[in-house]
Design a binder for these strands. Sequence first.
DNA 1: GTCTATACTCCGATAGAC
DNA 2: GTCTATCGGAGTATAGAC
Lengths: 189, 189
Amino acid sequence: MSSKNDSRQNILSVATRLFHLQGYHATGLNQILKESGAPKGSLYYHFPNGKEQLAIEAVKRMDALIKNDIVSSLEKYESAIEAIQIHIQKIAADFTNDEKLECVPIGILVAETAQISESIRETCKAAVEGWEELYCSKLIGDGFEPDLAKKLGVTINSMIEGAVTRSLINKDSQPLQQLAECIPVLLKR
Amino acid sequence: MSSKNDSRQNILSVATRLFHLQGYHATGLNQILKESGAPKGSLYYHFPNGKEQLAIEAVKRMDALIKNDIVSSLEKYESAIEAIQIHIQKIAADFTNDEKLECVPIGILVAETAQISESIRETCKAAVEGWEELYCSKLIGDGFEPDLAKKLGVTINSMIEGAVTRSLINKDSQPLQQLAECIPVLLKR
DNA sequence: GTCTATACTCCGATAGAC
DNA sequence: GTCTATCGGAGTATAGAC
């Protein structure tokens, strides 16, 4: 049972990193197998539904890690503006670190697979909605109107996703840093 | 010469639409060929560098169309806030229209191909920087500080890209609409 | 439960007839 | 210039030995 879990976890861990770095279609099962050292039969034993199941479980894994990051950033500062700004700066700092996951992969994965897998899309939707809820709650706790806070929660998440993608285009975290600098202007009342 | 152009343009037009809808890896040359009615040899005659060249020219095509949309939206209103808000509402309205292109595909294409093609990345970078410049100029023309306007130009573009991706996750333009509603709050001075 | 060998499809790309 | 036939390899998935 422990070896079963080890093997499974190992495959999933490698798959999560590769889907995040390269996207869904660019990541082949053979590459996952090669990097994890597992044989092909093992992958299909642990993930009978193949690549799609692997992607879904990878998204859930990313969700847990990212949610954790958001919570830990937001609880560090009372002011919502300050907390969100620091959160984005942290993402910028982690930008070049392959071990850290940020919210891009989710959007990219959906864009890539929207036409072939409803279940991947739904898994991603649930994850993203959870993050938005966290931003929303923080804003409400800091005195924002609930209605506006809800829209802003969605928008803040979009901003971050867009800025990470934009940083990817530049191969540089500057767009993320610029977003962080804009936050006090954007959210001031 | 006219037939040469027709065939070339036809292939490029189909490729542009498919790359936009499905991304780079999900779009096969065979699908492009099938939908355009052209034979494979014809594709390699017009685009000797194959898929990569096709993607680069498709991005340039998207760039021209999108730039045109941005200019035409922004020149309709004197107020930068109003103009940008209307622009985003237009993107939301076009969201379900396959014939209209918005800025998502650029970010997705880069994310998908970042590790395999520097030239696709550079082409996308040039395109996005042009759009940001348009937003920036509009803001400066409306009295924003040049330094802030530059950061906001980048950020506005990221917001839109993120919101289109988010709308893709929802299969619904609501996130884009919510972004549009937030614009007056976000950009007010 | 673990692993190997292999099936089958589709990919991007090329060669060469016309 | 246009089109067909085909290559070599990579893709996902499966069958079955151990």
